[in-house]
Design a protein around this nucleic acid. Structure first.
Lengths: 211, 211
DNA sequence: GCAAATTAATGATTTATTCAAG
DNA sequence: CTTGAATAAATCATTAATTTGC
């Protein structure tokens, strides 16, 4: 899996501060996503990474992030869609309301079941969390927030390998890696022998300011 | 809530689903936090983990999570405090208002400089993010939200080494790990030797064996 | 005193937001 | 404008405190 691994690093340029997926990689990822993969666990990510590394430099975190972002933006897109639909609906209602007030005629077969209106136009749509299993894609069916119970998964959900155990908590995990190429800061704190009690964390100040 | 039913997970080894910090570990972590550490990077986390592993089983992710949670809850606490202060202030104003309406006497030296009121009572206090550098602790000084500019750091901030580049994205990263070693438990928790230690304090904490 | 039943803390995950490279 | 990267907020879940009836 190291073939392309070292690719860009030493050779020309790049050192691109961020991963740039090749078309093949992207295709594969999208296919997997379409196939139902949403939150791959550690081993899955490793596999995927290994697989994709054949087409170009890539790391596990890239895959991790890709799925996170894709999922989030998909959901966001969907939310936006629903919201606009909502707003249109409200406007529609409002419109009809005004119309009715202005001229009380015409049955106007508007079928607004007043229920199923979103909680409210709070700046923060409570859309909540959907279980991350099947493809959420279209969701022409509102089911705004609120929990499901399996069945309901829109056709996709084919081979969701994912350990079928209820609540697949990968139970695996990430650990830090990639300790800064060079001494992160002053020398390498002996690290062994643990200078008993650095009671004052002085050395390690964090930062990551303002974000 | 649930009956004691859950307790029966046979294997003595509880396989504690979650890390349980020993008093020593906790002490050290808190000291570091107090010292200013907020979002340690990979290498820092590794060091810390190494350190703490001397007092009991621990993983990098535990340290990572600990800081995340601690920081978040600190912020939350602070936010709550500010909010209640806000509310009290409003109530105070309201109270005075009513008083004034009811009986227009008494100068009531209430010193409410109407400015310095938070943007508004939007359901979502914009308190925002404080830069996580110095000890935020008391914050008797409001400085509600709004950016600082270094200087102002309360005494702590000594050696800020960390790349001084603005917006230090020291982002090194995590990679997946621990793909279930097939027999995760097994291995008897070697506990890294060290086991022999006056782990003392509260003999009950255990954490050792079986877990 | 002591467990079962509640509640409070807090470890672990997921989701939403934000920042900035290209 | 799109999207990789990173952080913060919200949430879930389990353990420790605490309360309560005996």
């Amino acid at each position: 899996m190291s073939p392309a691994a070292a690719a860009a690093v030493s050779s020309s340029s790049s050192s691109s501060s961020r991963w740039c997926p090749t078309p093949e990689q992207l295709m594969i990822l999208e296919e997997m996503y379409r196939g139902g993969t949403r939150t791959p666990n550690a081993s899955q990510i490793q596999q995927i990474t290994a697989h994709l590394s054949f087409y170009g430099k890539i790391e596990g975190k890239n895959v991790f992030y890709w799925f996170q972002n894709h999922k989030a933006r998909d959901r966001q897109k969907l939310r936006r869609k629903l919201m606009s639909k909502q707003i249109m609906h409200q406007q529609h209602v409002l419109y009809n309301h005004q119309q009715q007030q202005q001229n009380n005629n015409g049955p106007q077969n508007h079928h607004h079941h007043s229920h199923h209106l979103l909680p409210q136009f709070s700046h923060y749509t409570p859309v909540g969390f959907l279980p991350q299993v099947g493809g959420v894609e279209d969701a022409s069916t509102p089911m705004v927030g609120y929990s499901w119970n399996h069945h309901h998964l829109p056709e996709r959900c084919e081979v969701v390998e994912d350990k079928p155990m209820a609540r697949t908590y990968g139970r695996d995990w990430m650990i830090m890696l990639d300790l800064g190429p060079t001494s992160p800061n002053s020398c390498s704190r002996p690290l062994k022998t643990l200078e008993l009690f650095p009671v004052t964390a002085t050395g390690l100040r964090d930062t990551t300011s303002t974000n």
